[in-house]
Write a protein that binds this DNA or RNA. Structure first.
Length: 485
DNA sequence: CGACATATCT
DNA sequence: AAGATATGTC
């Protein structure tokens, strides 16, 4: 009789869950008659059919004579008449039956499970699952003590979780590169998978990752640019900075028709991209909000995304304004108000471009008068060539590096990074709200965060007003002079 | 039927 | 949180 035939409690619509096989036959072997009797009684209480013997040789004989009768063997490891390991081997070779060893302590070699003496009925209730496993062709045999502290008979340990794909920094970098090469809107799982060229990676896995990635990008960009605040350069709470080791949202290809407040970043395309035409360098690199001994990757470098040439559009905005910012962390500054840390990127290219995160965790200073604060790493340089001399200014990358480890600690706190350097025309004010890493982000776009980039607004507006006033005054003076003459 | 996007589950 | 899986659509 096969297990399937004996299986009870199932009407064939059990949704794949194995049920207790009624009529399962267990052979119990123990040289201690008291123990054997106890075991037998317990097994019967569990509704197993039970045969017993106090000799290993007898057990082997019984098994050989009734090959199809027994489903499971429980044997003590201390059998005087035969080495139990030999019994295990023979049973395994000849009958391929699951054997549970009955031991005083946990010796598990060779057996599919072990039971500690004294045996508890709760443990015996679960042993049928070994039989089910044996009958599953794809079951990976492993030693696994049954759940001993509860009576979860319904839980089938034969349903083992598959190994989860872990998106390492390296793999994720490949993913990001592939996505950026394709363009976020055109990146579909299969193409990304092909481009990534990672062995063993499945399309479904990529799809899942891409889903989260898009969700995250969307939230970030919406948060960064969806505000009604008429800021010129507003980056709202980038909720969920946490996850991506190299979260690279391309900044490209959106038209920037207006220089008016509120019209500056009028629209984003589906690539969640924006264009900062004319902005000199393009990588904004918030440092790693991680512990110091936990670099994002081996080199600690941030890899910028590849901006496809076809994403390039021309436009003029902030012409000639040098605006590269490296948001690196000064290690000496450890914010104490829950803003987390910003690890500095150890890239010599950024040496002159350091900003300090203020102790208040609200201000990022630029001490340098260096107008072009940074140009990024080699890869950035390499790709910039694709856009020509000017083109490199036309495409910006927003490379949001990982705040992974620290994000949880950041909570609702914001790292409000402002740069108010007259020699550096960009003024950044980035709120980091890292309540969540992926989607489902909630943004607090009112109140405090609406001050984002207000200084940038103020400066540009101030200059603009000054210019207009100057023009007016000049005009008035000219007219007055003409009148007098 | 495969690929995809999205929702839901774990 | 993050990856897996289910579901509906094309």
């Amino acid at each position: 009789m096969t297990l399937q035939e004996k299986r009870g409690g199932s009407n064939g619509e059990d949704g794949g869950k194995d049920r207790f096989p009624i009529g399962m036959h267990v052979l119990a072997v123990d040289d201690d008659p008291v123990c054997l009797k106890v075991l037998e009684n317990l097994l019967r209480k569990c509704q197993y059919h039970v045969s017993t013997t106090n000799q290993a040789t007898t057990a082997l004989k019984m098994l050989r004579e009734n090959r199809n009768r027994y489903d499971l063997v429980i044997t003590s490891v201390n059998m005087p008449d035969m080495d139990v390991f030999k019994l295990l081997e023979l049973v395994g070779l000849e009958m391929d039956l699951p054997v549970i060893k009955l031991v005083m302590k946990g010796i598990t070699h060779g057996a599919c499970d072990y039971l500690l003496k004294p045996v508890r009925i709760e443990e015996l209730k679960n042993i049928w699952q070994h039989v089910v496993r044996k009958n599953k062709p794809d079951f990976k045999d492993h030693v696994n003590a049954l759940n001993q502290d509860n009576g979860h008979e319904d839980e089938d340990p034969s349903i083992q979780e598959k190994p989860r794909v872990v998106w390492s920094d390296e793999v994720h970098r490949k993913f990001v590169s592939a996505v950026n090469e394709l363009g976020l809107d055109k990146a579909v799982p299969k193409k990304v998978l092909d481009l990534m060229n990672v062995e063993g990676l499945k399309r479904e896995t990529v799809a899942s990752h891409l889903q989260k990635y898009r969700l995250y990008i969307g939230h970030s960009i919406v948060a960064a640019l969806g505000s009604k605040d008429p800021s010129y350069f507003r980056m709202g709470p980038l909720d969920g900075f946490g996850y991506f080791h190299t979260l690279t949202g391309r900044i490209s290809s959106a038209s920037l028709p207006s220089y008016q407040p509120g019209g500056m970043f009028g629209r984003l395309n589906s690539s969640a991209a924006l264009s900062l035409h004319g902005i000199s360098s393009s990588v904004i690199q918030p440092g790693h909000c991680q512990t110091l001994n936990n670099p994002i990757n081996g080199s600690g470098k941030i890899q910028p995304a590849v901006v496809p040439a076809n994403q390039k559009k021309n436009g003029t905005l902030f012409h000639g304004i040098p605006t590269s910012v490296d948001l690196n962390q000064p290690t000496q500054n450890k914010p104490t108000n829950g803003c987390g840390e910003f690890n500095r990127v150890n890239d010599p290219n950024f040496q002159d471009a350091r900003m300090a995160v203020g102790g208040s965790c609200n201000t990022l200073h630029v001490s340098s008068g260096n107008p072009l604060l940074l140009q990024s790493n080699t890869q950035q340089t390499k790709h910039s060539g694709a856009f020509g001399n000017q083109a490199s200014l036309s495409n910006s990358l927003l490379d949001l590096y990982s705040f992974k480890a620290k994000s949880a600690n950041l909570g609702d706190s914001k790292g409000d990074i402002s740069n108010v350097g007259l020699n550096n025309y960009i003024i950044l004010n980035i709120d980091y709200a890292t309540k969540q890493q992926w989607g489902d982000s909630r943004y607090d776009n009112n109140g405090n965060t609406n001050h984002s980039f207000c200084r940038a607004d103020s400066l540009v507006l101030f200059l603009f007003v000054c210019f207009m006033l100057f023009c007016c005054v000049y005009k008035i003076c000219q007219k007055t002079y003409d009148a007098w003459c």
